[in-house]
Amino acid sequence: MLHHITPQLLAQSFYALRRDAAVGVDGMSWREYEEGLLQRVTDLHARLHSGAYRATPSRRVYIPKADGRQRPLGIASLEDKIVQQAVVTVLNAIYEEDFLGFSYGFRPGRSQHDALAALTVALKSQKVNWIL
């Protein structure tokens, strides 16, 4: 599936990222990476296809929760985020066709609220004996 990862897809994946996100573990901001984007994604593409690309270890930070516990959060490098977004794009294109219309989990453009709305319509429009 690696042949689907192209410099154009990597550039699209870059622009799909949040511009105002905090800098990654590599210290690179979105705006800094955008300068020389063509060269950067061409180099990234070459490293991916030659096997030279290695993901940078994420930095672990903990976010406090309201109940006093902490939620772990991994901070990735900007290039890792670009590669991850590109892989998500390719996998979504492949597997989206296999999902049934009533599947909502982790699908683009669908949320738990959409699932609840569909469930409400189904419960009101027909007799239901059980729900999984």
Rank of each mutant, 00 (worst) to 15 (best):
T6Q: 02
P7K: 00
Q8M: 06
Q8G: 05
L10S: 03
A11E: 03
Y15T: 02
L17S: 06
R19P: 01
D20R: 07
V23P: 06
V25M: 02
V25K: 01
G27E: 04
M28P: 01
S29V: 00
R31G: 00
E34R: 06
Q39Y: 04
R40G: 05
D43T: 12
L44F: 00
L44S: 01
L48Y: 06
S50T: 13
S50Q: 07
Y53H: 09
T56A: 15
P57G: 13
R59D: 02
V61N: 03
P64K: 03
K65F: 13
R69S: 15
R69Q: 15
R71K: 13
G74L: 13
A76V: 09
L78M: 09
E79S: 04
E79K: 00
D80K: 00
I82M: 02
I82C: 07
Q85E: 14
V87L: 15
V88Y: 09
T89W: 02
T89D: 10
L91K: 11
N92K: 12
A93D: 15
E96V: 11
L100A: 06
L100C: 10
G101Y: 10
S103T: 10
Y104V: 08
G105T: 05
F106H: 02
F106R: 04
P108G: 10
P108N: 06
R110Q: 06
S111P: 00
S111F: 04
S111D: 03
D114T: 02
A115G: 01
A115S: 09
A115I: 01
A122K: 11
L123W: 07
S125N: 11
K127W: 10
N129Q: 12
W130G: 12
L132P: 07
